[in-house]
Amino acid sequence: MRSTRRNALLVTLPPFAWIALFLFLPYCLLFCYSFWSLSEFQQIQHHATLANYVHLFTNPLYLTVILRSLRIAFSVVLLSLLIGYPLAFFLVYHSGRYRHLLYQAVIIPLWVSYLVRAYAWKVIFGNEGVLNTLLLWLHAARHPLSFFLYSPFAVIVTLTHIYVPFVVLPVVASLEKIPRELLESSSDLGARPWQTFLRVILPLSLPGVISGATLAFLLSFGDFLAPLLLGGPSSVMIANIVANLFGADYNWPLGAAVAVVILLIVVTILSVTQRLARRQGLA
């Protein structure tokens, strides 16, 4: 069938060209830059050197920030699952006739601007923010509490708020796939509700948990806006370092090296969770 082959070529070529030019080539450039260096006069030197990577791995600052980013991302995932899983469970099994509406209510915040939501938390946590003035008004505190804003705490709460729906949606999808007969037979065979949950529902919903958690983890790991807006020096994340090196601290080669490290971490995490998901799918 020569015509299908020609069609296939015609259909595949434009996206192929686009990807080659605007995804593959930029990533190659990123890789190249990470081996270049900056001269005294801020000129980019096109000689391959490992200096950027040596600097990265010998200066404890970078490792600290990477570990902090991983820790923040991990807290966000944990909180999102703690809030999102029960919510998904409620939606699938107990939401009754308002189910459609309640499901939409999880999606609507996704359509609300990221910036708007991050900013809302700033309004809540600020020194003269809603939370502090409320505490003063209730006489629960004498002075405004300053630890809310400009701390990893504020960043974690904000990112959790943003990524809860990302966890709820895939968990709902995987809970919906569980045949109700399985639950009935589990209870007919004498399992108590919590046993059915632990041994039937939870294992079968793991693919949804894994895909939601992975997405929330990767997106919060690479976030740089929430730390800029709500975090102080104690919550600088790795993407902030890249942004600074491409901005005020002008050192593109070093920035590119940090970006390559981020990319490697992302790809590693992704392949681990993919393997986990595949094992779940086969089990």
Binding site: P26, L30, T214, L218, G222, A239, G255, L270
Partner: peptide, 18 residues
């Protein structure tokens, strides 16, 4: 599908270099 999961910062700077 890579830009879905790679931090926006990285997509941004690689295109900036291009």
């Amino acid at each position: 599908l890579l830009p879905l999961i790679v931090p926006g910062v990285i997509t941004g700077i690689s295109l900036l270099m291009l």
